[in-house]
């Protein structure tokens, strides 16, 4: 119970700080917009190409913007070793991981909430009939990415050039999650059967569980001075 309250407190603090400065959200949103627009130039909107590549573009947007947000959010916690303030509190290290991961999920979800409608409008994709399964896939993909991202952004925040280190560590390792997310979205958007979509969602769930547990277990070692 105590941990749950502390997790809530940490998330509340992070969101409050973000509401004050807004720099993470604004940079993430602008960045995702730019990605969508750039891809728009590469493929003709309305062409059949866009239908097959839209899921890929969607996830590239999410992952690049997510990387940006992750780097910023931990840079903030690590400026002037402020993480010490949190570590001095009587709070379990695993609770810090959960709080940070949930916070990152919130920020990435915000990006999705904004960039998905923009893509729908700009690329003329129809998602109304697949909205709920699409949301499920987005949530699952975000969970896995945020788990790995939370661990690696804590690592990279303590390195000399964190902007370079984070994607270097994060992208290769999170490829399975990205693949499963893109694949299930592709089947969903292109009218694949329920069985096909579901088999990929199951894979996505399995990866989420593996990565979350692994990062959860290893987080303690990363926090220690």
């Amino acid at each position: 119970m105590k941990s749950v309250r502390q997790i809530g407190t940490i998330i509340h603090k992070d969101v409050l700080i973000e509401l004050r400065s807004k720099d993470i959200i604004i940079s993430m949103l602008i960045f995702s917009l730019i990605v969508v627009v750039v891809f728009n130039f590469i493929f003709d909107p309305g062409s059949e190409m866009i239908k097959t590549t839209a899921p890929g573009i969607l996830w590239v947007t999410i992952i690049f913007a997510g990387n940006l947000g992750l780097a910023r959010s931990f840079a903030r916690e690590h400026e002037n070793a402020r993480m010490h303030g949190l570590l001095l509190c009587p709070v379990d290290r695993s609770a810090i991981f959960v709080a940070k991961m949930l916070g990152n999920i919130i920020f990435i979800t915000l990006v999705e909430v904004v960039s998905l409608p923009i893509m729908v409008i700009l690329f003329d994709i129809h998602i109304r009939h697949i909205l709920w399964p699409l949301i499920l896939i987005l949530v699952l993909g975000t969970i896995g990415f945020a788990a790995v991202g939370t661990l690696f952004s804590t690592i990279s925040a303590n390195t000399k050039s964190r902007e370079v280190m984070l994607p270097l560590l994060l992208f290769p390792v999170s490829i399975p999650i990205i693949l499963a997310a893109v694949k299930s979205t592709t089947f969903l958007m292109n009218g694949g059967g329920f069985a096909q979509v579901w088999s990929w969602i199951k894979i996505l769930i399995a990866f989420d569980v593996i990565f979350t547990v692994l990062c959860f277990l290893l987080y303690d070692y990363v926090l220690e001075e």
């Binding site: 690592i155 390792v173 490829i175 399975p176 990866f207 593996i210 290893l218 990363v222």
Partner: peptide, 20 residues
């Protein structure tokens, strides 16, 4: 310590990447 954490995750990642 960071490298060790990454080394472990990286190795476990190999079969997962391959399967995916």
């Amino acid at each position: 310590r960071f490298a060790a954490v990454f080394g472990i995750i990286g190795f476990i990642d190999v079969p997962i990447v391959y399967m995916s």
